[in-house]
Amino acid sequence: MTCPSCKKREATIHITQNVNGKTTRIDLCPVCAKEQGYLGEPDGVAGIFAGDLFGSGATNLFKMAGGMPGAASAAQQVERCAYCGTSFEEFRNRGLLGCCHCYDEFGQRLLPVIRRIQAGETHVGRRPDGAPAAPKPEETAAEDKKRLLKRPVRIPKKRPEGDAQAADASAAAKPPVETAPAATAVPTRPAATAAESGLEALRREQAEAVKAEDYEKAARIRDRIRALEPGKEGGTKA
């Protein structure tokens, strides 16, 4: 719907106010909502959530279906991007965001998704303004992947399968490639070994995080362990 106040922009902020038992609904666009004091800076929004802004006589059920960029982190449940109208549900179903502002709007709600598919949570590369790259967070999953990456990709000793000719050729090729430069990287340990030592380190980190009662960190590490563990998400074997 169009914002009844400015009659121009889309009304994406919906506020239900309950004053002494009388419920009123207010629909506004983010700009008018801000002008009329319904949307403040992040702190203000947090105040509304804390429920002490209107005193004891009124409760403010603040339901945002969109929000200002800065408010996104305080308002955990942004359902719809105020700029393009894409709902979080839509994103979850389709896997595509609606516009660049969605990253602001949905903010931290995207993190669980991003953690599953990316190595880190923070961009460390180039920026359009040419500003220096952000310093790398100390313990990111990227670092772990890096450590794994520095090890050579190992070739397992496993007997190959395939057509008769290939099997024939490879049977003769045992032990493989003794003279080749690759020889140092070849066999004795299965390919999963590199990942396994990374897993051990992660498990240790996870135990430490639990001990320190940093459950958020522990959960993050758990997700990374899941991603690396064989047998999970189509890994080699259970």
């Binding site: 990709v153 190992r154 496993k158 395939g162 290939a166 099997a167 490879s170 493989p176 390919a191």
Partner: peptide, 14 residues
């Protein structure tokens, strides 16, 4: 030909 490719693909994926 030697069948090592499967393990290499798997390691890269990891």
């Amino acid at each position: 030909m030697t069948g090592y490719i499967a393990a290499v693909v798997e390691s890269l994926r990891k």
